[in-house]
Amino acid sequence: MSALVEVRDLVKHFPLTRGIVLQRRFGEVKAVDGVSFDIERGETLGIVGETGCGKSTTARLIMRLLESTSGSIKYEGRDITRVKGAELKAIRRDMQMIFQDPYSSLNPRKTVGSIISEPFIIHRVESDKAARKLAVQELMETVGLNPEHYNRFPHEFSGGQRQRIGVARALALKPKLLIADEPVSALDVSIQAQVLNLLRDLQRRFGLTVVFIAHDLSVVRHMCDRVAVMYLGKVVELGGGDALYGAPQHPYTGALLAAVPVPDPARHHTERRLLTGDVPSPANPPKACRFHTRCPKAQERCSVEEPLLRVPEGGRTEVACHFPLTEGELAQMGVRSAG
């Protein structure tokens, strides 16, 4: 069977315009600039990377909430890149999204019951009112909300509970694909763990396929089977969680992992090699390898020839780098999870 979703050479450029009346284009933000990956049935695929690297844009392209500039998206083997109307509506039913901000993604004037019922109404399922209420209360129970709170408003719930409301709404139509975009980033650690456990539990129970987007590397490690690392609109490394965290090959992945503060004072004071500078602007990304301006391993070739995503000899992940990290370098960088 083919993968549930196949993304190929996906590109999204946002025009940069100047002027209010006559909008003149003076450039473009290369938010997503040629990414390819599969989403396998039943897996949790993680996407990590720093702010602005194109994670959310990738998600919105797959959901068809944004039109791509070029490239293709296949869903269950069918090209859905440009589908419209009823066909698009059917796809939207199969793919659901959970957002970062549990506050702004829920309409404050609607009761929890009517928020969770929305997908039923939009897609005309459970049109019988009593049956719908039952279905919603069952969903509330599934995500750990008290079904008696059906008539309450979002502000009466805590952050973690609001995120549960979002999860219930996303699950209403039994989607095949769930895209969670930074679902726990706004939550306190104790509440974050509640929501992570809920998502993992639901994923196992319903065999959901999940795309899990986050900038917290530990959270992604915990949640995902495979992980894609993005930098400036490109996937720079892609592979199984164990391989990617245990022996990262891309210098950027290595730098990300080395930068994570570890909750263990005994480990502290290992001199770590830090990345310097900031991420360049996606409106004007560096040529060839986009990481070459900050990469400790960069050679001339890196600024001339673009490295393609591939599995190098002896490597366990796909990596877009001319000079993947060696074992010695990993140890030196203080990447702690070798093995």
Binding site: S158, A193, Q194, V219, R221
Partner: peptide, 19 residues
């Protein structure tokens, strides 16, 4: 409540209930 960067993915988080 905090997932670890290393170690086993199988380790379950033990959240604090409520808020």
């Amino acid at each position: 409540s905090i997932p670890s960067l290393e170690g086993s993915r199988e380790r379950e988080l033990v959240p604090i209930p409520g808020s």
